[in-house]
Design a protein around this nucleic acid. Structure first.
Lengths: 330, 330
DNA sequence: GGGCCCAGGTAAATCGTCTTACCCAGGGCG
DNA sequence: CGCCCTGGGTAAGACGATTTACCTGGGCCC
């Protein structure tokens, strides 16, 4: 900046005034000289120094729980990043393992770097023991909830998702279901199961005729449970899967058994991974709005309105595709 | 810091000396007083100010090309992040679209924020027109190469990957292949095809008996091409797939045709997505070492040795699993 | 006792920017 | 002619650290 001033024969103050758009008091001629010097010297302001002076870094700390290595949920990062960019902010990212010590260290480092907000995202919805933070720093959890319940969080509405999955099938006229659920003790599973039960009730169906089989969210268990489900008599007409991976397992099992989708059985997934649209037939599934969750998080974090969030549940809509259709004989 | 000094009845200088470990000249008693004051006031140094003074931000700029939203390749970010963390550095992340203007803006913003290195990662290996950067700033491309060839880059050795896929099958005794390749004009496809041809030659096989079918890297084309491949007589004993997604398509097609893997036909994928290990049977595939690529990139970027990299090719090893076996009758 | 050294600390400059308070020369006005 | 205002700029603090150069008092040695 001093160089620019020298080149344009003005003071540093003048250069700053011109550059910061406060040229109310600077003559056009001087302004032009300064801008020319800036151009000639290829000067660019040092944002670290600006930040120090202004007391703002335009930076959001983003701590993840190995999330980025997980398929599809990098969308949270994308959503955060998009909003941040719109507001001249950037994401300072740390990939912290489950390890609480590392989480604490990461959070402290980010605080020391004067981030203006802190967002934590977990892979599977889970409880987390979040470290202490300064009272004036906006903190937000995505896909996780604080052990002590003091921190605002954004979670997918898994219960509603489970319910819309089954309601979609009910609307098509289905009456016999099996729910191929994921790990029994996972929070997401419990919620999805709850939605499933709600859905059955809405349809006036008995739980005993529409059982829940538990697996582990992986392809293999989708395969195994699908085989088991199709052995029931009368056969189910719709398999609701705990996630898209299990739906893939079901696809393979059904292909091998010669059962056609959706003519003989409809399949509904959960997650709307990119792969869902590419399967053949394309997979009807429930979308978890990760990208939007990231956007909402960043918006509130930067606006300093995280306290308005409370325990926000994001709606998980059904995405109808080719794997569901009216049951035969309707 | 001034507060701490006051509390401990010493100067700011002394506090700084104690905290930075330069206590060579500070008495134990004073040191203890200072540390106590630090504790009492819960003082933490401002890294923005430190950075300004020291002229170092301990920050790597990481620009992605929508990569994070792509399954499995978030591993690049994880690798970068891991090394950065080991060296007290953090990642400043921007998700920039293909759009060159946005890329330029992102790079300039990162430069203004005084990042100590710049890493760009692309989704599919591709050419990129990277903006001008200051000469002393380490810049590195992952999974991309600079249009003008001036920027060091780290790419997977796709050719070797293709070759090891077929060599693996040759070792098992296979002699009739079909390569279900991806998009014909993609760089990665061309390289993998080259490796495939090398492999055929090594095995003494004729290209005319072992054709290449081109698809689009999606499940649907894997399905279609697998059907087409199995219509050949004599039947191929191994299908090499352009990526794991196409292999999934092949799995479904073969299941529907009643062809068993690996008894009747072996399948080899490419990418080693998480899904590969979960398929049933688990999928033999070629691993792209994204995590390691991230690690190498961060290591050289932080050490300032990017120029040693040149055009580095990372080895892509075969990961043998259950989808490949000796052909029948051997 | 004087000179020197050393341990233990501190004052002040610096990093690059913003911002408040001030300065100065003209011009209008009474 | 003196006063005040105003347009156009500048000097001089911050912001929160680090680091160099200096200061001071006491002990040691001759």
């Amino acid at each position: 900046m001093a160089d620019v001033g020298r080149q344009a024969s003005v003071s540093i103050t003048t250069v700053s005034l011109v550059l910061s758009g406060q040229h109310s008091r600077i003559s056009e001629a001087t302004k032009a000289r300064v801008l020319k010097a800036v151009e000639d010297l290829n000067y660019r302001p040092n944002k670290a120094a600006q930040g120090l002076r202004l007391g703002q870094t335009r930076t959001i700390g983003f701590v993840t729980d190995e999330i980025l290595t997980q398929p599809f949920s990098g969308n949270i990062a994308a959503g955060l990043s998009a909003v941040a960019w719109e507001q001249q902010s950037l994401l300072l990212t740390v990939n912290a393992t489950m390890n609480t010590g590392r989480l604490r260290a990461a959070v402290e480092d980010l605080i020391d770097r004067q981030v203006e907000a802190l967002v934590f995202a977990a892979m599977g919805s889970r409880e987390v023991d979040f470290p202490e933070t300064p009272p004036n720093l906006p903190v937000l959890l995505i896909n996780a909830y604080d052990r002590r319940g003091r921190i605002p969080s954004i979670m997918p509405n898994e219960e509603e998702g489970g319910r819309s999955a089954i309601e979609h099938a009910l609307d098509l006229g289905h009456e016999r279901f099996v729910f191929l659920a994921g790990r029994e003790n996972a929070w997401a599973t419990k919620m999805r199961v709850r939605g499933y039960r709600d859905g059955l009730e809405i349809g006036g169906l008995r739980p005993v005729d529409n059982p829940i089989f538990y697996g582990d969210y992986r392809i293999g268990s989708g395969y195994d449970l699908a085989v088991r489900a199709m052995q029931r008599r009368p056969r189910p007409t719709t398999l609701l899967c705990g996630n898209d991976q299990m739906a893939i397992g079901a696809y393979i099992a059904l292909a091998r058994m010669g059962v056609r989708i959706p003519e003989q059985v409809s399949i509904v997934g959960y997650d709307d991974e990119p792969i869902a649209a590419d399967l053949s037939p394309s997979l009807t599934t429930v979308r978890i709005p990760f990208y939007e969750m990231g956007r909402v998080a960043a918006t509130h974090a930067l606006a300093g309105t995280v306290s308005e969030i409370g325990q926000m549940l994001m709606s998980c809509p059904i995405v109808p595709r080719a794997s569901t259709n009216r049951p035969l004989g309707q």
